[in-house]
Design a protein around this nucleic acid. Sequence first.
DNA 1: GGAATAGTGTCTGTTAGACACTATCCC
DNA 2: GGGATAGTGTCTAACAGACACTATTCC
Lengths: 235, 235
Amino acid sequence: MTDRSEADYLRSYDIKRYDTPLASVDNVIFAIRESWLSVLLVKRADFPYKGHWSIPGGFIDLKGDASLEDCALRTLRAKTGIDSPYLEQWGTVGNATRDPRGWSMTCVYFALIPWVEPIQPKAGSEQVAWVPVDSLPEGMAFDHADLIQLALTRLRAKATYSILPVHLLHNPFTLTEFQRANEIVLGRTLEKKSFRRRLLAADVLEEIGERREGMGRPAALYQIKAGYEGFVFGG
Amino acid sequence: MTDRSEADYLRSYDIKRYDTPLASVDNVIFAIRESWLSVLLVKRADFPYKGHWSIPGGFIDLKGDASLEDCALRTLRAKTGIDSPYLEQWGTVGNATRDPRGWSMTCVYFALIPWVEPIQPKAGSEQVAWVPVDSLPEGMAFDHADLIQLALTRLRAKATYSILPVHLLHNPFTLTEFQRANEIVLGRTLEKKSFRRRLLAADVLEEIGERREGMGRPAALYQIKAGYEGFVFGG
DNA sequence: GGAATAGTGTCTGTTAGACACTATCCC
DNA sequence: GGGATAGTGTCTAACAGACACTATTCC
């Protein structure tokens, strides 16, 4: 397939001869903190939008990142220490106006993780913080406020017909905790019997042992059966 | 917000100092042709993969394209003459190996259009053709065979709970034609009464007039009510 | 026993599948 | 009437919401 002239073409190809957009990967990282669905935000230490809150992300490292997902995992690891989150590509936004430096496209991922303390960088000026999605700061960098809303819409849509919110919990968990995580994501209460009946019918959980709490009857502990992490009802 | 030093930063910013990936937009364009779900393919006239079949797309034109969607619409118009198709972003694939020229990312859109004769370019070596999704050619360029399969999976998933396949029909259409389009996309037959009952309950169609055909009772003609093009059942 | 939480039984209304039925055209 | 296609009536099984009920713990 690679005949003589294709080899010549590739040898002399130089991307710097062309105008290319800025290409980045950004992450909307969700966790539940004290009953609030929250996202991880970073206060920018550099221009542009210095001092404004943003979602964690950055330019693709052509040497270090083998793929877009690799790039997303790299920043996620840097900010949270978590290696294997639930990570899904939301989509890509690209236009001529979103970045003052020029035509910019960013591939947006969203991640669901059990809550952890964020990793603060050494450089003093940057800050990392969990912020409830209901009280995001004004004046966020770029179009990041929009990106969060879009990821949130997707998350809520999927929460209604999948077990996605399970990734917001520490393992193992009780059915009540699981239902509560779903309710926090969806912003409305769910009916206990319906919730459990559907989950039981799907056969995606396995019991482990028992846990006692300060009050009431002890609840059975569960974890997701291996391979069912992306389970969708009716799929 | 833009203080003195940010203005300085922006004035001296030069993207060419950095290594950036190749950035393109590709389109999986679906139509129904003689009862077969088909995609529009282009035989490449240039390196790399010269002479191989590919999906239509290309690099972003930083001057001409205001956004990624604009870029997708531009190629779609060039190949089909259609200005306002159903167009949805599927997702973005980016890694170091998919293009022999270097780190490459492509934003993949999928479009649904009523069948039209493709527009052949003047340049003789390039060809444009509709190909049934069941008989795609071997040795397609880049990872385009994968991209088609992924878009197809998404299309089939959405066809089960939305009225998406309506965009594959010419207006107006009969309910039987609409059902048939759904069946072609899904690859299985649907139950007539259930199909119509659900559609009627959704109240997304409006009747127009009558059409008679060579055989049997004439069927009522319908079109989608304005604003319901993206309707989803149970949404 | 009482408070608190976990977990179940069961009625009811809605919806999808199955399939036989009627309706309207052409010949 | 017969062939062909459009469109409907209706039975049944599956499932979700509602809500009252039982179960198990600590005090």
